[in-house]
Structures are given as C-alpha cells and as structure tokens.
Design a protein around this nucleic acid. Structure first.
Lengths: 303, 303
DNA sequence: AATTCCGTTGCGTAATTCGCAACATGGAAA
DNA sequence: TTTCCATGTTGCGAATTACGCAACGGAATT
C-alpha cells in the first residue's frame, strides 16, 4: 500500500511554487537532493511522471496537477483538524489569512477586525490586499482562507458566503453642484473633471460596461492605482470620482465627501462579497471571523 | 510542523474497529507495541488523549472522534486520488464496494451489474447485502462507496444520488381472487393468509405505519428474514405477501406472480434510492457504476 | 488464588530519510 | 563555437524513525 509520507507531496508543491528544486530546498531548509529524491520516489510509487524534465521553471504534468490539487485538499483538511483539536483543548489560538480587495480595505473592515482581535486576542490575523482577480486566485490556491472582493466574476469553484449591495456612486466634495442632486445620469458626467482607478481595477471594468450600455465614453483626467488619491482629488474640489460607496465610507460618514447615486442599472446593482473556495472547510478561527463579519458589517447571508 | 505519517491514524482507526490493539496488530501484521507507540506519539503531538485508558473494548475520546473522522476523510481523498492517477495511466481498473438492501438484490440489479462488469472487465466489484440501517451505516463509515436501499430514513449526512418510485403492492399467485382487482385497500387483507418479513425489515416498518394510519392490524401467518421464502409462499398459492415491486421484479415479469396496487398513500409513495455519504468524492470506477445504474435502471436523477 | 488478556516499556535491529559532495545536463553569455 | 553558471541527479555515510521481541504491570475472569 502506498505511503504518501506527507513530505513527498509537500516538497513537490513547494518546488512548483518556487519554480526550482533548489529554491524549494532553501525555503524548506532541506538539501536539494532530498527534494529530488522524494519527488522521484513519489513518481515511482504512482508509476507516473509528475514534472516535465529539463525545464525551468518546473512544470507539472497532468498527473502532477492531480497530485497538487490532492495535496491542497489534504493540507486544508489537516489544518481544519489540528485547529479543531486546539479548540477542543481550550486554546483559543489559531491563524486566519484574509485577502481583501483594495476597494474594501477601509474603516468599516478595520473596525470590525479590531473588535474581533480584542475579543479573541490569541488569534493571529494575516491581511493581504490585492486586486479582485488576485484575491480570488489566493482563495482558490488556499493561500487565503477568505477573500473580500468587489463584484467578483462568477466562478464555479468560488462560494459566496456573504454579500452586500455596494452601488457605485459619484463621489464629490460637499458644495459641488452635483451634490445638490438626488441622482445623476452617466451622461451628465461627460463634462466633469473625472478621476478614475487604473484600467486593471474591477471598478473600472464595471464602469466600462456601464459606459458602453449608455453608449458614452468617459475620459478621466486623473488615473491612479490608489483610491486614496482619487478621494483626495475629489475632496480638494479639483473634480469628481466614481467609487463603490464602501471605498469612501468613512469620508462620507464624517461629511468630508458626498455620494450621489447614479441612475444606471449596471452601477446600482454591484455588490461586495466574502468568498471562500468551494468545498473548503474553514478552521475554527476563520469561522469565528466570518461570523463576526457577517454580524457586524452590513452584509446579508447569501441565499 | 506536525507530520501525520498516515500510519499513526491508520493504526488508531484499526484499533478502534477491532476493539483492541492486539487484534489490530494481527489484522495489520505489526507488533502490538508499534500500535501502542504510534497512538501514544500521535497523542503527544496533538497534546490530547485520543482513547480512554483502562477500557476494553477501546473507546475514543472526543478528540479521538475528531481524529477518526479526519482519517476517514483523508483515506477517501487518497483513494480518489490514486484512482484518478490509475485512470490517467489508461489502466481502467479499480474497485467498487456496493452495499445493497435485501429488497433490492434482484435480477434488475444483477443484470445491470453484469453489463457493467463486461463493459469494464478490469473493475472489481464487492457486493454486500444487509438491512437498510446497516447499509446506511456502511456508507456513513466509508466501508461502501454507494448503498442501494428501500425507503431510507432521511439523514443529514446522506446524499441521495438517484431514486425511483417503488410502491409496495400485494403479491399474489396468478388466479388468486385478489389478482382480478385493479387495486385493494389494506382492510381487504385482514382475512387473508399473510406472509411478511421480520419486524426488523424496513418493509415491515413502513407497513406498520400504514396499518396504524388505517387503524387496522395485520397479523401474518408466516414470518421470515428471506424474501425468497415469502415469494415462494405466494407462488404456491398458500397465501399472499406484501413487497415493494422491485423485490419481486423477475417473478412479476415472467408471470409467476402478480402485483396488485394498494390504495394507501404511505405504501404508494415509497421509493428505492442510491445513496452516498455527503461530501464524499467517488473513485472513477465507482462513478462509472453509478452512471450505469442511473442510465439502465428505472432510476431518475435526484433533484 | 490462578489464569488470561490487555496495554505499556526497554532494547537492539531494520528501514527511511537526510546532508554533503561530486557529477551530468542544458541554456545563456562571451 | 566555447565558456560558464545554475539546475537536477546520484553515491555514500550519518541520523532519524519505525519495528519486533521480550518482559512487565494491571484488570477482569475462572
């Protein structure tokens, strides 16, 4: 009977992640020879090559892909198990790895995170911010337990645990002519000095869809990869920007910015979601954080 | 980081299954000392006792239950993985373990199984017959990949993959007075000489529910744990019996027995189901058999 | 009180895995 | 083309780990 000493697969996974066996050997603090041997031995046991030889960076064969996804499943299961045991011992520790889209990393999230961490002081939290696509990738590869993203594209391997409406609105300085209006249409903005995120941002993609539906073309005068810059641009009165409300939550709350609804279906029905990989069990610590987020933030449980 | 050399958990699982470490040591062909040591070491790594000492047969602690169910998950995942690799190598082999309720083990199943086995000659099939409850138990403990049962009780951990209506009917010899009628009511049978399965059979339990709804009491003159005996009793003309139609499928098809519908909701809406453990992935071989069963037998895909 | 079956522990042995070093190979730069 | 650098692979001795055998202590049964 095969004995998949977990090291075999772990070495394989790290070798792929790092690109070369030698890099993996440093990350894992083992000799390169061990990596090579264990992978070769695993191939012998399975009777199938797992990596394509004579290539750099390392590339998996079809069987290798199977092995890697099996290892990921195995690893998350083990993580859940040891987490449950720890919890049963009364040790309330644990680790949560969270990936957050740029638009959502604001006071709203940080406040609930603060409360969470003071309620469970032993739980360590890792937060990684990235673009929507990268966040989804981190979740799919089990490098993050949960992801919080704005308007993720539907994906069969992604499970939406919670989601809340986050319409995109025009963000203006109080006193700006537009701030008087109850709502604006997209074409009303054509004359305005507009600041927008870079084209890679999901916010921008959603906006582009709306533009083509309205058959107009918005050309920004300022483009940035920092939402802070966009908001500062609006606050200074130099012009306006368009963001999901959560991205400017605190500024809207303290009155330094004002949000005007846009009368455009594609922009009104956007939402922010908490997502996990489909089929993945979460460690106890992650479950607690998820519950906290569902309870504290204006998120509604998914159907 | 913990290294759960799979042996540790395998020894624990077998020790529990067998009841004592010594019995497990014989089943696994290892010294009893190894069993004891590996379990002790696992406990040390986890920091939690897994079995209650000074007890015979061995009993798991709460953490032990966690460990065992983790091991089961791990084992089925590994099985799926090696099965996928085998399949990818072009070796069409594999093993399917099937648990079948007594009422369903008839020509219908055996014929489709025959066709399946000649289409995939390299796949080995294990069939185990048992009562409805035992079949469900085998599925829940991963000792069978799939179970085929008559009217299983709803269970949160059980997933119904397919199911077909299998009403219970009166089984009589052709020419019997009842065989002329299009349907009978339960009270019509009170005077008849009746043969029924033992009280432990699910068939009998369903029937009992129907009796109390109609407020009558059927007393059999013959009780057996063999459905064959009941059918022979009816065929000889000594009396009648009540069975789901699938249990007498071949006899009804060749005309040696006749089935008369019973006008009683609880008996008309019974069904037979193919079930698996919720969340369990199936090896390729098992998937193939499942597809065959869905396609060939009068089963409809579950919603 | 004697017996039996159980789990546990000490100790020497066998099997795996590892690190170090030398070797083979392939692609990029000179 | 040749040189050179980084990578994967293999040989060998050391370290770690799992194992079998035998003896021991405890609990239940006869």
């Amino acid at each position: 009977m095969a004995k998949f000493h977990d090291n075999r697969l772990r070495y394989l996974a790290e070798a792929i992640r790092a690109g070369t066996m030698r890099a993996a050997s440093e990350n894992l603090n083992v000799a390169p020879s061990s990596i090579s041997r264990q992978i070769a031995q695993l191939e012998a046991e399975l009777g199938v090559p797992l990596i394509e030889r004579n290539r750099s960076p390392l590339k998996l064969t079809e069987a290798g892909e199977l092995a890697l996804s099996y290892f990921r499943e195995f690893a998350t299961q083990q993580e859940v198990f040891i987490s449950q045991v720890r919890d049963l011992r009364g040790l309330r520790g644990g680790t949560v790895r969270l990936a957050v889209g740029e638009a959502l990393i604001g006071d709203l999230l940080l406040d609930t995170l603060d409360r969470f961490m003071s309620q469970f002081p032993e739980i360590r939290v890792f937060i990684r911010t990235a673009g929507t696509g990268a966040v989804v990738g981190l979740v799919l590869e089990d490098e993050a337990h949960m992801g919080m993203v704005f308007q993720p594209e539907p994906d069969a391997k992604i499970r939406v645990r919670a989601s809340s409406d986050q319409p995109m609105k025009v963000i203006v300085r109080p006193g700006h002519p537009l701030s008087k209006r109850g709502s604006v249409r997209l074409c009303d903005l054509e004359g305005e000095r507009l600041a927008l995120p870079e084209a890679s941002f999901r916010i921008r993609q959603v906006l582009r869809d709306a533009e083509s539906e309205e058959q107009i073309n918005l050309t920004p005068v300022l483009v940035s990869n920092s939402l802070m810059v966009l908001k500062e641009f609006a606050r200074s009165g130099s012009g306006i920007t368009i963001l999901p409300v959560i991205a400017a939550h605190s500024e809207i709350a303290d009155g330094s910015l004002h949000a005007v609804p846009i009368d455009q279906p594609a922009l009104m029905h956007t939402s922010a979601s908490v997502v996990t990989r489909l089929g993945r069990q979460l460690p106890v610590a992650a479950v607690r954080l998820l519950q906290k987020i569902e309870a504290t933030m204006p998120f509604l449980p998914a159907p």
